[in-house]
Design a protein around this nucleic acid. Sequence first.
DNA 1: TAAGTAAATTAGTAATTGCTAATATTCTTG
DNA 2: CAAGAATATTAGCAATTACTAATTTACTTA
Lengths: 99, 99
Amino acid sequence: MEDKAKKMARLLKVLANENRLLILCELIRGPRTVSGLGEKLPNITQSALSQHLALLKAHGILDSSKAGQNITYSIADHRIEEVIFVLRKHYCGGEEGEG
Amino acid sequence: MEDKAKKMARLLKVLANENRLLILCELIRGPRTVSGLGEKLPNITQSALSQHLALLKAHGILDSSKAGQNITYSIADHRIEEVIFVLRKHYCGGEEGEG
DNA sequence: TAAGTAAATTAGTAATTGCTAATATTCTTG
DNA sequence: CAAGAATATTAGCAATTACTAATTTACTTA
């Protein structure tokens, strides 16, 4: 159990960041290129965005594929989606989308 | 949406700690006094346990009541339970208990 | 090959976290 | 009130985090 708690805490630490949540919410709607994400999330600088994406990918939450000079990120671990749905259901007034 | 992400990140930060998860998992099974928790979670010192409980209470996740010199903590925000159930379902091989 | 765009990386820094050790508070019992 | 138990609080420190600024790498097009 202690191991499980450690694993869960690690995962939650990855989720526990406003900008990463915004990135994930955007990617739940569908795959996006880095620059596409950048347009949707103008408060995150290019560097920060890239670092967040790398972290999410390192934890197996995202996957990426390259096409030309664009890199498209998508949700790799779909369990995350349900976690976020539950969080949204309870802590965002039941809303699902942002616009 | 940004506000919601900020709120969710704040909540997740509280959850994103191994010892706090263990405390919550124990309290999901039922209310416990501080010393009762201490016995179940011998890896957490008295001081650390108290600080974690205070943090969880400050965020409205726990409630406490005093009886004599014992203080009993319990889950106040039951939405947390479903969040933890979903996490456990997906990230702990579907197990529910620890003993 | 030069110029431009997309994305990643690096170094540095301020803020936050989680702990320990020590002390304080609160209650109970004699 | 003194002694002991249950819990909280405080100060301080090492580790981690999230960011910015600058640079670099990889690709495309002319």
